[in-house]
Structures are given as C-alpha cells and as structure tokens.
C-alpha cells in the first residue's frame, strides 16, 4: 500500500465523509481550506484543518507535494477551484494521485485535461442510484445493504504474492473461492492495460505475482482465504 500523506482540499460535507472513513481505517490525513470561518466547525467534528492560501505553489510545496504526498482530493464546491488546483498540483508532481469532485458536466472534461486521476461525480452517482432504485429496486437495496451498508459483506482486493499457492495457477482451474463464503468478482492483470476485468468476461489466464483479485464476502472469510494462500 502506498504510504504517503493524504491531503483533502476544501472542507465540506464530502471531505467530512471521506475524512470520517479514513479516520476509521487509521489513515492520517490533512484538511486544507482558505476559509477561516470553518475552523470552529472542524474543531467540533474533531478534524484537523489548516487554513492557507492553496493557490500559491510554495504553500503546496510546504505541504509536501512532490515529496511525500501520494493522494490529493480536491473537493471544492466551485469547479473553478478544483480545476485550477488540479492543474497546479499536476505541474508540481506528475505522479501524485488526484481525485476530484465535480458539480457541472462541462468540468469533467476540463478536469481530465488538467490531469486528474479519478473524478467523483456526486450527481452522476446519485442519479444513477435513483435510476436503479426505480428500475431494479431489489438489486439496489441488496447492493446498498451489503457492499455499502452495515452488513458484514465487503469488497476487498487481494494481491497475489510471489510465495502464494495461487501464483502460476490457471484462473478456471483453481477457483479456490468455492471453499470460502466469498465471490471472486474479477481481477486486475498487471500485464493487461485494462484496470479491471470482471470474472464473467471469461478470460482464462494464469495468475501471476502482482495480479490483483477483487472479492466480495465476509471479512472473516476473506481473512481466512488470505492466510490459507499466503496472501
């Protein structure tokens, strides 16, 4: 796992949600905003908030950009700030992972040009969910309850290590997940360009070191699987 600093630009509801989850998983992170009025609010919520002018390159460098920062979220309500900040950050560090939120359709393309890695579009996500709730309410409820929800069924990724018993095994042959209460959804093959391939696509290939499996199941089952196969 990437052991770098995480910066959250723009202190708003999205930042609070992300921050809460990062905190729960034990990741250190820093929130930055230029609005000092937010300080008491952040303090009340137990967040560490830095007030600074992020439009200055020096400020960004002083935060560790291009040194030890590995993930940056730009979460401002204004697309202008997000695009500009993304551009500044990308110019300083070509390798940092930048994740942005967007509020208008036009900004998506601009953010991509500015060099963002991933765009979180709250409206698209929200709209898609409402659409699913109307067309397939049962499925959305199940996804909500399992993957998003309280129930102890999670989605996790497992990297194949050199010494694992799975190293060098054909995907169709092994199918070791049958002995565990979990589902193999798909995998990421480091030799293929594509980020993620669903298992149902029917590619049958040999698992190598560095391939990543994505599974859904109870955390305990996934943990058992990890231990059994030296992952």
């Amino acid at each position: 796992m990437n052991e770098g600093k995480i910066l959250l630009f723009g202190f708003n509801r999205s930042a609070i949600e992300i921050g809460t989850r990062l905190k729960a998983q034990g990741f250190p992170f820093t929130c930055i905003d230029n609005n000092a009025a937010l300080l008491p609010y952040a303090k009340k919520l137990g967040f560490e908030l830095l007030i600074m002018d992020y439009s200055e390159d020096d400020t960004l460098l002083s935060l560790g950009v291009s040194e030890d920062v590995s993930f940056i979220f730009t979460l401002f309500e204004e697309d202008v700030h997000n695009v500009f900040l993304t551009l500044c950050l990308r110019a300083l560090d070509p390798n940092v992972q930048i994740i942005s939120t967007t509020h208008t359709k036009d900004a998506i393309h601009k953010l991509e040009i500015a060099g963002v890695n991933t765009i979180l579009d709250p409206y698209q996500i929200c709209g898609k969910r409402i659409y699913k709730l109307i067309t397939q309410p049962e499925i959305m409820q199940i996804i909500d309850a399992t993957i998003f929800g309280e129930e102890d069924i999670n989605m996790e990724q497992i990297t194949i290590t050199e010494h694992s018993a799975l190293n060098g095994v054909l995907l169709s042959e092994c199918y070791p997940t049958q002995n565990y209460n979990m589902l193999l959804i798909g995998l990421h093959d480091k030799e293929l360009k594509k980020e993620f391939i669903f298992i149902t696509e029917g590619h049958n290939h040999t698992l190598d070191q560095g391939d990543i499996l994505v599974v859904i199941g109870k955390s305990a089952e996934i943990e058992r699987f990890r231990i059994d196969f030296n992952l």
Binding site: I6, S14, E17, L22, T118, L120, Q157, F196
Partner: peptide, 19 residues
C-alpha cells in the same frame, strides 16, 4: 457514497474500479 468511494480509492484502487 463519495466518502465511501474516496476512501476505497486510497486503500483499494482496484476494488474501487470494480465498484
């Protein structure tokens, strides 16, 4: 959802892509 996906992206980028 953004919070969940944002956190997922940091810890498990591939499972984020799957999601």
């Amino acid at each position: 959802t953004i919070g969940l996906m944002g956190a997922q992206y940091i810890t498990q980028p591939i499972s984020y892509a799957a999601l």
